[in-house]
């Protein structure tokens, strides 16, 4: 099979996304789920860069989109981990099943 760099990049992106998906689905730790989500976001960003490299867009719009995506991912990680710390302070655990009984 003749694999070019674009296909290699897309396959890597798909594999990273599925690895993150497996981590999110199989673990019950909140921090672990956040790590999996970050990995999935990274895989999506990799697709943007690969398609920009092999696309016809001369403008750097996909690059800027990835930059915005990285910024939003940083914000998501900050809020998610702050929620984990706040939840841990109340329940002394960071397991997601315990978070199904939150009130108010």
């Amino acid at each position: 099979m003749n694999l070019d760099p674009l296909h290699l990049c897309l396959l890597l992106s798909a594999a990273l996304f599925c690895a993150g998906l497996a981590g999110v689905l199989s673990r019950s730790g909140a921090i672990f789920a956040l790590l999996g989500i970050e990995l999935m976001l990274n895989a999506a960003n990799l697709n943007f860069a690969a398609f920009w490299r092999h696309g016809q867009a001369a403008a750097p719009d996909p690059i800027l989109f990835v930059l915005f995506s990285i910024a939003v991912a940083a914000a998501e990680a900050a809020v998610g981990l702050a929620l984990v710390i706040a939840f841990y302070r109340h329940r002394r655990t960071s397991r997601l099943p315990a978070a199904s009984r939150l009130k108010g």
Binding site: S26, R27, S28, G29, A30, I31, F32, L34, L35, A77, L81, V84, I85, Y88, R92, T93, S94, R95, P97
Partner: peptide, 20 residues
């Protein structure tokens, strides 16, 4: 992430990283 792990790890007896 590392700080969050260190802050939430100490008294957690449930070993949250194990598959459910």
């Amino acid at each position: 992430v590392l700080f969050a792990v260190l802050l939430t790890r100490r008294h957690d007896p449930a070993k949250p990283t194990r598959p459910a």
